[in-house]
């Protein structure tokens, strides 16, 4: 896959006036954001500021929460996501999501990965086997599990389970990966592996990652967005946001004055 500069700079996700309510409570307030293709965008901000809520709007996982209401517009490659005409299964195949806590299925390692592609139409056994291997390789897990593909995924370590979840998502061949604090429950070595993986994967995917670790954001992301109390305060190229933030509140946050 060749990625030219032009393509690398264009916008994949564009939200306008995106607001989310849980019952009466407003969790996101009129967020306008553009997210660049084949780049890593990090979301930072204090707990409860709406990072996960924003992420879950992108693949419409908020719909599972009773009383949750989403208003405004989200466009992915120019297509409106918040529309009843969108096939939700197709949307979630394109916009893959990895959760904070690894949540492998109570199935074998192989089945964990083959499950979604099979549902989305890959029926041939040889194709599936190839896809499983490819996904595990991309998630840097193949060497560790290649001899035990048919053993339960629950026997893996926490870090391996999280990489399995990433492999499982990649296997659907999405174009966008949403990672909600994927390393926050992991040890430093597993965290480092996930970070390397993220940088590796941005060649092929547009990645949005939520993190509480500012160093992590600085290390792996190209763009950083700072949220505060349901509002997007500032989004800029990572080096710029960390060295010369435009907003006083961003500066206070990254210098550790609150949060």
């Amino acid at each position: 896959m060749t990625v030219n500069i032009q393509q690398a700079q264009d916008t994949v996700i564009k939200t306008s006036d995106l607001s989310v309510f849980y019952g009466q409570k407003q969790a996101l307030n009129s967020v306008n954001m553009e997210i660049e293709r084949h780049a890593v965008t990090a979301f930072i901000g204090p707990s409860g500021c709406g990072k996960s809520t924003f992420l879950r709007s992108l693949n419409r996982m908020n719909e599972l929460i009773p009383n949750c209401r989403v208003t405004g517009s989200i466009q992915i490659d120019g297509i409106e996501v918040n529309s009843d005409a969108i096939p939700i299964e197709g949307l979630r195949q394109t916009v893959g999501m990895v959760f904070q806590r690894a949540n492998p299925f109570f199935k074998s390692i192989f089945e964990n990965i083959a499950f979604a592609p099979r549902f989305h139409g890959v029926k041939n056994k040889a194709d599936l086997e190839e896809l499983v291997e490819k996904s595990l390789r991309k998630a840097a897990l193949w060497d560790e599990v290649k001899d035990r593909l048919h053993e339960s995924a629950l026997a893996l370590s926490g870090g391996q389970q999280q990489r399995l979840c990433i492999a499982r998502t990649i296997a659907m061949q999405p174009s966008i990966l949403l990672l909600d604090e994927p390393a926050s429950a992991l040890d430093p070595i597993s965290t480092m592996k996930i970070e390397e993986l993220v940088v590796e994967l941005k060649q092929e995917y547009t990645i949005v990652i939520v993190t509480h670790n500012l160093h992590q954001a600085a290390r792996i992301s190209d763009h950083t967005a700072f949220f505060l109390m349901g509002e997007l305060i500032e989004k800029a190229p990572t080096s710029q946001l960390f060295t010369s933030p435009q907003d006083k509140r961003t500066e206070d946050y990254i210098s550790g004055k609150f949060g």
Partner: peptide, 12 residues
């Protein structure tokens, strides 16, 4: 989390 994982993979 099992249900969430499955739905997030676009499974019906």
């Amino acid at each position: 989390s099992q249900k969430e994982a499955s739905l997030a993979l676009g499974i019906s």
